[in-house]
Design a protein around this nucleic acid. Structure first.
Length: 261
DNA sequence: ATGTCTCCTAAGAGGAGA
């Protein structure tokens, strides 16, 4: 089983790249973020012709998440119960016995912004939601743009970014509370190249200069961790013409398309 | 170093968000 996540920064602009990626990598599930697309305008027919079903929680202009899967996802759920939010940032479904949650965590803008306070409230709600999810489903996978670089090694220049948004102590602590529910950062289960990042700013030629952060993550529950065989970041999509500012992150599991027990 | 990209309104550029 292969699952991936990708912040596409507009599904309309990146549709051909998404279809290419599905064709090349044949994931069982692909989580998407920043659709910037109303639910009713999502290109369902295009992804269907590529062989994928879609759960979509979209809105006009901003945010928006989706879960593409080869088979129809069970128990679809948009948003987080008990946390009313006009911003569409969460969608979940069950695929091959795995509860998959696609998340687009708030950016926060800056430490003094109202959006930063919202980000911390949102993470608190996410922690509660994932705790409930883990009680209901043993095999849980949470994938998306977390907008947090968990450690200094996830930042190209930790000194320059120290205390900045995406790297602040409070954000890292909030990310840590997600792990404390019983989830594991799949990327760090394996040896990885140094300077592994998933996002590079569009400005200042950041990608070519290696100025990136690792803020897109795949978290797996303990029951899933045992089956996890590899995890990586596909930088090739960031090197393309007209790229998203994020690269896809993928994870593979042993046991074919349906990891059992 | 205010740099780039996307989408919106609104009929031109400019603002919001990342």
């Amino acid at each position: 089983m292969k699952v991936a996540t990708w912040n596409v920064n507009s599904i309309h602009v990146r549709l051909e790249q998404v279809l290419d990626w599905l064709h090349q990598h044949q994931p069982d599930v692909l989580c998407l973020q920043e659709l910037k697309c109303e639910t009713g305008r999502f290109p369902l027919a295009a992804v269907a012709s590529a062989g994928y079903q879609a759960l979509v929680a979209g809105q006009k202009t901003y945010n928006g998440v989706a879960l593409l899967s080869r088979t129809v996802a069970g128990d679809p759920l948009a948003g987080m119960p008990g946390f009313e939010d006009v911003q569409q940032r969460v969608v979940a479904g069950t695929c091959a016995g795995v509860r998959v949650v696609s998340v687009y965590c708030p950016n926060g803008e800056s430490l003094t912004s109202d959006k930063y306070a919202y980000k911390l409230r949102w993470f608190s709600a996410l922690r509660n939601y994932l705790e409930e999810t883990l009680q209901r489903y043993p095999k849980v996978l949470v994938a998306g743009d977390f907008n947090v670089a968990p450690e200094d090694r996830d930042v190209y220049d930790p000194t320059a970014w120290k205390g900045e948004v995406l790297c602040s102590d409070a954000e890292r602590a909030a990310f840590g509370t997600l792990l404390s529910t019983g989830l594991h950062d799949a990327f760090r289960l394996f040896d990885q190249p140094p300077a592994s990042y998933s996002w590079w700013h569009y400005r200042v030629n950041a990608f070519k200069r290696g100025m990136g952060l690792r803020i897109d993550h795949v978290l797996v529950s303990t029951a899933l961790r045992e089956h996890c065989t590899s995890c990586g970041i596909d930088k090739t999509m960031r090197a393309r013409e007209r790229p998203s500012d994020h690269a896809p992150v993928w994870v593979e599991f042993s046991g074919g398309s349906s990891p059992s027990s």
